[in-house]
Every structure is written in structure tokens, then in C-alpha cells.
Computed example of a mutant assay.
Amino acid sequence: MHFHKYHGTGNDFVLIDDRAQAFDDADRTRIAHFCHRRFGIGADGLILLRNKADFDFEMVYFNADGRPGSMCGNGGRCTVAFAKHLGLINEQTHFLAADGPHDARVQSDGTVHLKMQDVAAPRPAGAHDIFLDTGSPHHVRFLPAGLAGLNVVAEGRALRYGEPYGAAGANINFVETPADPARPWAVRTYERGVEDETLSCGTGVTAVALAASQRGAASPVRLHTPGGALEVSFEPRANGGFENVWLSGPAVRVFEGRWAE
């Protein structure tokens, strides 16, 4: 099996050119094994690139636990970079993901701009918490300070399985509010399916940027994750939602190899 490894601000993925549809996507144990950081290749998720009528390609995403995932923003940007590496696209693309069609464009410096789906108005989820669905469900908790020392795994796990999310769960984002909302917003994320903190989460920073707009942040919002910097631009809608939402940042090809089974 020929594979490629990519990352988007430290959010890393195994990518496979599966246009021949030879990969057994029902074998969750095998997928989880590929993603295992000690016994496999190591990744936050696995992505299959497949042919799809009326689209440049289809992105099929699996979480690190082997289960099919919802939309992954950084994974989407990495898949776009992978498609360009394969010669399937040039600078512009139109592809299908778990949450529907997406457009994207690639700059010469490797920056990938991914258009996200329109997002409904945020819902309150506590005194300092907001819920949004940006292709994946995200709980955003604003902190006045102390993000660097926060136990993200313990705090995130408690919220991920708590009310009202239940077994389905949600991704949990912790945000340190800057004194100046025009400065980068620091974000750390606990991801369901990985069941750990990841260095970055694309749908997560998208949710944070939109939630931050209710706290004085203006588009484009700059965000800083442990894995690097991302930017989110958007247009507010009259109903409190958002449209023309774009997630932008680097997508880096790390290496390629063959897995012998």
C-alpha cells in the first residue's frame, strides 16, 4: 500500500490515492493501526482520495480510532494539496467531503484556502461557552487566561461526553481571549475520535473564529494553535449565522512510503 503523510499546522494525516477503490474502508481495526503512533504510521486520521462524478475528487475521512469522521478542515486542506501533488487539479478545485461540496484554492507558497459550509447561529452552552457546527460539532469555552497550563485532555474529555452531547460527543476548544480582539486568538482542542489533544483542528479554529466575532473579533480572524497559525474569514448573516467562510493556512507534504502487510 502506497501512502503519503501530510500535516496542516501539526494536524497530521495518512493520505491514500484510492481512485481505484482498492482500499477496504470497512476494516476499522486496520485503519486505526495505520494511525497508531507506536505500531503504525502515526496520524490524527486517515483520508482516502477517490473519484467522484461531477467533482474533481472525493475526500473520505476516518478518525484515528478507525471510525468514519465528519468534516475535517485541516484534512480537507491537506487533501487539496495532495490532489495538486497528484496532478489532479491546478490552483482551483471543487470536491466532495462528508458534509457536502467544497471549493478551495492553492497559493504558490503552499497556503490552501478552503471554503467551509455556511454555519448556523452559535448557541449558548454555558456562562462562557458556545456551540457551533462547522461541519463537525464544536464546543467553545472562553478562558480569561491560563490556557498554557490547562489540562486539555482531562477538561476536554469531561465536556466531550457530558450533557448535552452524550455518546456522539463533540470536539472541545479552549480559547484564551486576547486583550485586543485583533490579535491572534490562542486555541487548544480536544478531538473526539482521536480522544486526545491535537496540535490543531481546522473545523475547531473555524468555530472559535465565528464565536470570537461575538466578542469583538472582525473578519479575518487570526488564530494560533500549538501547531501553528491559521486564519478564518467570513461574512455574518442577518439570522445570526455565517456565510462565505474560508479556512486558510499551510498544508505540508512530509513523506511517502509503502506499507508491507
Rank of each mutant, 00 (worst) to 15 (best):
A158L: 13
A207L: 04
V175L: 04
T177H: 02
V153E: 11
N173G: 13
T206L: 03
V194W: 02
V152P: 07
A158S: 15
G162F: 08
Y161N: 14
T206R: 03
C201P: 10
T198D: 12
G202H: 06
N173W: 01
V153T: 09
G204I: 03
G202F: 01
A179E: 12
E197A: 05
L159Q: 14
I172F: 03
V175T: 05
P178T: 13
V152M: 07
V208M: 07
Y190L: 10
P164Y: 10
R188G: 08
Y190M: 13
E195Q: 14
G204V: 03
D180Y: 03
T203A: 06
V187N: 08
A168W: 00
V194L: 05
P164C: 11
A167Y: 06
I172T: 08
T206H: 03
A186G: 00
G202N: 13
T177P: 02
G156R: 06
A182W: 00
A154Q: 14
G166S: 08
S200I: 10
N173T: 04
E163A: 15
N173F: 02
A154V: 07
G166V: 07
E176T: 11
E176K: 09
L159G: 00
T206I: 02
R188K: 13
A209E: 07
A186D: 09
G193L: 09
A167K: 14
P178M: 12
A182T: 14
R157I: 00
R183M: 11
A158N: 12
L159R: 15
R188E: 03
E163H: 14
V205A: 04
A186P: 00
G202S: 13
N151G: 01
P164K: 11
V153W: 03
E155D: 13
N171L: 08
D180G: 06
A167L: 14
F174G: 14
A182V: 02
Y161K: 14
Y190G: 01
T198S: 15
G204A: 03
V187P: 06
C201R: 09
Y190E: 10
R188N: 12
D196M: 13
A170C: 14
A182I: 03
R160A: 14
E197Y: 12
P164W: 09
C201Y: 07
T198Y: 06
A209I: 05
G166R: 07
R188H: 11
A182H: 12
E197R: 12
G156C: 11
T177V: 14
E176D: 11
V194S: 01
A207V: 03
G166E: 07
R192V: 08
V208R: 08
E155V: 05
G156A: 10
A170K: 00
C201T: 02
Y190F: 15
S200C: 15
V194A: 14
A167H: 13
T198A: 13
P184Y: 06
V175H: 04
I172N: 04
E197W: 10
T177N: 00
G169H: 02
Y161C: 12
T189M: 12
D196Y: 04
G204C: 02
T189A: 13
A179H: 07
P181K: 05
L199H: 05
N151S: 11
R192T: 07
E195S: 11
P184R: 02
A154W: 00
W185L: 10
E191Q: 06
T177E: 12
T203S: 15
L210P: 01
A207R: 03
I172E: 03
V152K: 06
V153Q: 08
Y190P: 12
R188S: 06
P184D: 08
Y165Q: 08
R160E: 15
A209Q: 09
A182G: 13
N171F: 07
